[in-house]
């Protein structure tokens, strides 16, 4: 598998670490109370079967966190952006 790091160019899987779903958003209420939004953020995930936005870390390269859109059926990579560029 290869991922096109927007900074370094296409690189092999061995340079990256997988983190998980990129579409979950950390609640912005400050976390004073452990409510459902927080439990969902940490534990609940869609079992997607198709394009999946996910986070990868370029650990052996430029240390960028990347949002990779990857089809979980075909393994096609549909897009890669730097996480810091996603608002």
């Amino acid at each position: 598998m290869r991922i096109a790091c927007p900074y370094c160019g296409p690189r092999g899987l061995e340079e990256f670490l997988y983190h998980g779903d990129a579409s979950v958003r950390r609640p912005e209420d400050g976390g004073a109370v452990p409510d459902q939004a927080w439990t969902d953020y940490v534990y609940l995930r869609e079992n997607a079967n198709g394009p999946h936005r996910e986070l990868w870390y370029h650990h052996a390269g430029c240390h960028a966190w990347l949002v990779v859109t990857r089809d979980l059926r075909s393994h096609d990579i549909l897009g890669v952006t730097a996480a810091r560029d996603e608002a």
């Binding site: 670490l17 983190h19 986070l55 870390y57 650990h59 966190w65 730097a82 996480a83 810091r84």
Partner: peptide, 13 residues
Amino acid sequence: MQHMEFCHQVLAP
């Protein structure tokens, strides 16, 4: 280190 990069780039850019 990985966690700090995550916190910075993903959570608090």
